[in-house]
Computed example of a mutant assay.
Amino acid sequence: MSNPNIEVCPVCGVKIENGDKVIFSVGNPGTRARLYARVCNYVQKSGCINQEQESLGVISANDYYRPI
């Protein structure tokens, strides 16, 4: 049975629940802003469902990967 509140990106396969809760393949859930900061910003492929600035929210410094 499919859940109409889940979007799946055809580019990276990530699941977005209820418009903002991002289910990564590994680790804790995040936001569209975190997904954009870590993946979508760099991939820039046609079909990505996370490119609209108004749906991202505020991207904070914690959304990016931290240097080791």
Score class of each variant (00 low, 15 high):
55 S>F: 11
35 L>W: 07
33 A>C: 01
57 G>N: 06
51 Q>I: 07
9 C>D: 15
37 A>V: 02
4 P>C: 11
66 R>I: 07
67 P>M: 10
53 Q>E: 15
24 F>M: 10
60 S>D: 12
22 V>N: 03
67 P>W: 11
28 N>H: 08
53 Q>A: 13
13 G>N: 02
63 D>Y: 05
39 V>A: 04
25 S>T: 07
16 I>N: 06
39 V>T: 04
24 F>R: 14
13 G>Q: 04
43 V>K: 09
63 D>N: 04
59 I>Y: 09
53 Q>L: 10
64 Y>N: 00
19 G>H: 14
9 C>S: 12
10 P>L: 02
38 R>N: 05
50 N>G: 01
34 R>I: 00
45 K>R: 15
46 S>D: 15
21 K>I: 14
42 Y>E: 12
35 L>H: 13
24 F>H: 13
6 I>T: 09
35 L>N: 08
56 L>C: 10
52 E>S: 12
37 A>P: 05
17 E>S: 12
4 P>D: 14
4 P>H: 09
59 I>S: 03
35 L>M: 08
10 P>G: 02
10 P>Y: 03
62 N>Q: 12
37 A>N: 05
12 C>A: 00
26 V>E: 15
49 I>E: 13
29 P>E: 05
32 R>Y: 02
24 F>Y: 09
26 V>K: 14
13 G>L: 02
58 V>I: 12
59 I>C: 08
54 E>M: 07
63 D>G: 05
23 I>R: 01
35 L>P: 01
4 P>Y: 11
41 N>L: 12
18 N>H: 03
19 G>P: 05
5 N>P: 00
36 Y>K: 00
41 N>V: 04
25 S>W: 07
52 E>N: 13
51 Q>N: 12
50 N>P: 00
50 N>H: 07
66 R>L: 14
33 A>Q: 02
47 G>R: 14
16 I>E: 09
68 I>V: 15
18 N>W: 07
4 P>S: 10
66 R>T: 09
42 Y>I: 08
19 G>V: 06
57 G>K: 02
8 V>K: 15
5 N>K: 13
7 E>S: 09
16 I>H: 04
14 V>P: 01
12 C>L: 03
51 Q>K: 14
2 S>P: 06
19 G>S: 13
28 N>D: 12
20 D>G: 01
2 S>D: 14
44 Q>S: 03
48 C>G: 04
4 P>I: 15
55 S>V: 04
31 T>S: 15
3 N>E: 13
41 N>F: 07
1 M>E: 11
15 K>F: 03
23 I>K: 00
42 Y>F: 15
28 N>W: 08
45 K>E: 15
5 N>R: 04
17 E>M: 10
58 V>W: 06
61 A>P: 00
7 E>F: 05
41 N>E: 13
6 I>K: 03
39 V>Q: 06
16 I>P: 05
27 G>K: 02
29 P>A: 14
16 I>D: 06
39 V>P: 01
11 V>D: 01
26 V>Y: 12
49 I>C: 10
60 S>C: 04
67 P>C: 07
53 Q>M: 08
40 C>P: 08
